[in-house]
Amino acid sequence: MSKKFKRSYKFALNTSSYITLFLTGLIALYEYIQLEVNLASIFIFAIICFVFSFLIIQLRIEYFIYKRVKSIYDSVSILDKSSLGGQRTTSDMKTLTEEVERFARGKKLEIETLKVRENYRKEFIGNVSHELKTPLFTVQGYILTLLDGAIKDKKVRKKYLSRASKGVDRLIYIVKDLDMITKLETGDLNLYIETFDLVELVESVFDLLEMKSAKKEISLSFDKKYSPIYVEGDKERIQQVVTNLIVNSIKYGKKGGTSEISFDEVKNSKIMLRVTDNGEGIEKEHIPRLFERFFRVDKTGSRREGGSGLGLSIVKHILEAHNEQVYVDSVYGIGSEFSFTLPKSDEIQEEETDASLLN
């Protein structure tokens, strides 16, 4: 019971009791000296003195603590001013301490989040400048060489213009990818949801990347033969997702290795697509940052392979726009597996249900 009793009330009660006893004793002594002892008047005086002392002390304590705590709120801004409102702040110091600590923890977490974002911003700006600087300087170098007189030599002119054109293409590629991520993040990129055959889409990606995979002697294949698998999504964007994942597996794959596609039906009527390779794999500490813009596990090798460094980030944003996620499982030195899900087409599900009922 005593634990539940507010400390300020206990303080006011004890103080009031001491004051009451002192004043009552003083009056009793006075009455005794005057030889006119009146117990009723002494008792009434004691009650009045106690109640008055208790109220005055309690109100003063509340005002005292409220005034100082509010000053802390205003100066330190730990709490929002709206949290005080027009009410009095409690004079229970334990409650006040817990409240201040709770808000302090919230502010600390907010500050830490801002620091992480600031570091990410600095790193992002550095990566953007690095990615743009390389092709820009390349293009500038070839153009300056031509202006210095090499333009008169037809062979050199053609070769340098061709290389400058490749540098410009790389710049356009990076800017387009950045523009797409920005649109995905702000919701400005509209998705055209349709039903399509996921197996056919993967086969078309295999055809597009046939020459790229042949250069590294990496085979592109399914783990088994599949019938058509119909899903719902933006076909063009999903093709970009599959392309980026397969390109990534080729880029980091071992010479003579494999990039294998498999499909699984999971709960909630969804199809999971897996891209598995037996490449170099990814170290565990790098996995949480894989989908950041411009993040590269191999800073030198991956740049030699080309690309904007935004492939996996685009994959993540496109799938999030579909309300889906991308998953990664990798063992360093053995290989990696990237996977994502898409909803199975309702039309196909209805056809399968009707067929099963007929049978």
Rank of each mutant, 00 (worst) to 15 (best):
S204T: 09
F206W: 04
F206Q: 07
F206L: 08
L208P: 00
L209A: 07
L209K: 05
L209P: 01
M211Y: 08
K212C: 00
A214N: 10
A214V: 01
A214K: 09
K215W: 05
K215M: 12
K215P: 00
K215Q: 09
K216T: 07
K216P: 01
E217N: 15
E217V: 09
E217L: 14
I218G: 00
L220R: 08
L220H: 11
L220G: 11
S221P: 00
F222K: 10
F222Y: 14
D223S: 14
K224I: 04
K225N: 15
Y226D: 05
Y226V: 02
S227H: 13
S227I: 09
P228W: 13
P228H: 10
P228A: 10
I229M: 12
I229T: 09
E232N: 12
G233N: 13
K235E: 15
E236I: 13
R237V: 06
I238K: 04
Q239S: 15
Q239G: 15
N244R: 06
L245D: 02
L245T: 02
I246P: 00
V247D: 10
V247C: 12
N248P: 06
N248F: 09
S249N: 03
I250T: 08
K251V: 02
K251G: 01
Y252H: 15
G253W: 11
G253C: 09
K254C: 02
K254S: 12
K254H: 08
K255G: 04
K255M: 07
T258D: 12
T258L: 10
S259D: 04
S259E: 07
E260T: 12
E260M: 09
F263V: 02
D264C: 00
D264F: 12
D264E: 14
